[in-house]
Design a protein around this nucleic acid. Structure first.
Lengths: 212, 212
DNA sequence: ATACATTTAAAACGACCGTTTGAATTCTGT
DNA sequence: ACAGAATTCAAACGGTCGTTTTAAATGTAT
């Protein structure tokens, strides 16, 4: 078994550490140490820490967003073929489900999803802007699809609710672990991924469909 | 007009800067500079940066949470007097509305609310744990009240949905400004506070009340 | 094998961080 | 006015950070 090249090892280590600690709290020394590379390797291969984050995000997010975009298009096509308006829950599912399903994808990466969650709600403008630039077209696509699904609601309200959806989703992704802190039931198991995903989809679908 | 004492000036400056940049990204040098105090003043008056954050949170959060707790009790009492179950939206309103109304309170502080939002979704365990310790009892109180309002739903599901609520709320508080990034309507004004608050309450109420 | 480009390596740079120190200053009670 | 406590101050400490530099090592095409 040959070791992946330095660039890949750096991406893997950064993905893992960023997902655990966030961008600002992860040092290049920790990344290069985990990747068994020299400290200077990040700057040599990527130019800077910020460019490394961009590469980490792009490696996973471009195919993930493509997948989500395709699923949204499928929902729209099916609705057109059936002569109905698209189903809100199906659109929500297209946006959220692939995100969580990515944990079990071919890359075997469970880390990217946490980075996405963190980026989505990051206070750091560097992180947030990088992420927003990558997801902006998908959000617009989803927004337009939701406007078709919810013709009785004003466009701007739908956008605001989509914004709430991203908040609930990011929070869910990042901190599902701390939910237990509050639970009085001490022997409660951590929620299964699928259960949590379905709970989230039910919650935001109802929120999006709420009367004006 | 006499200047507030150093301790108060430090709290005010920290509150303002933490709300803009977050805890980790705000240096004690920036805080003491804004407060027109010496660099050592934070360590002298508060002991450490972390204790300063705790003091900043407590100064506003204790009265705010008391206010929210009282409103929840009022909703419960009214329901008992009327012989009905408590109203979900009224409970949500008790939890959320006071938060936003605090912008216009006697302290004139618009900053605390952003810190709360940031703390609620912070990746930093130091920040998160400080905040959670302060809000834990209120969350439990609200959870129990919601269980009365939604007797048809399992307790754990209600908790999960309350968790989504906090995510949507924190995201809404922190980043309502960036919502405009996506908006295609270029001359859209930033949403009025009350409008945004009502949108959020409608969204999470519908999500909480969604059928199981 | 030799010349060349790519990659790795160790070390240092300058900047910023939270905290501590110890002396100077201001306040307070008598 | 004066002693003692409380506060402010400038300076430094030890540490971590992202980045750069310069040289050594490795790979590659002729």
């Amino acid at each position: 078994m040959t070791q992946p090249d330095t660039k890949t090892r750096l991406l893997d280590a950064a993905e893992s550490l960023f997902s655990q600690q966030g961008f600002a709290s992860t040092s290049l020394r920790a990344i290069t140490s985990d990747a068994k590379a020299n400290l200077a390797a990040v700057n040599y291969h990527f130019g800077s820490k910020e460019t490394l984050l961009s590469a980490v995000l792009q490696r996973r997010l471009l195919p993930l967003n493509q997948q989500r975009s395709d699923r949204i298009d499928q929902v729209l096509s099916a609705a057109t073929a059936a002569g109905t308006t698209p189903d809100t829950e199906a659109l929500v599912r297209a946006f959220i489900e692939a995100n969580f399903a990515f944990r079990r994808d071919k890359y075997g990466s469970s880390a990217l999803i946490s980075i996405v969650g963190r980026s989505m709600i990051s206070a750091d403008p560097v992180v947030r802007d990088l992420f927003l630039a990558l997801i902006h077209p998908l959000i617009n696509q989803l927004h337009q699809a939701l406007c078709l699904a919810l013709p009785q609601l004003p466009t701007r309200l739908i956008f605001t609710r989509l914004f709430f959806t991203m908040g609930a989703m990011g929070h869910c992704i990042c901190f599902s672990g701390i939910a237990q802190i509050f639970k009085e039931d001490p022997d409660s198991n951590p929620e299964d991924n699928n259960v949590m995903t379905n709970n989230l989809i039910n919650f935001v679908t109802a929120g999006l469909e709420a009367p004006c």
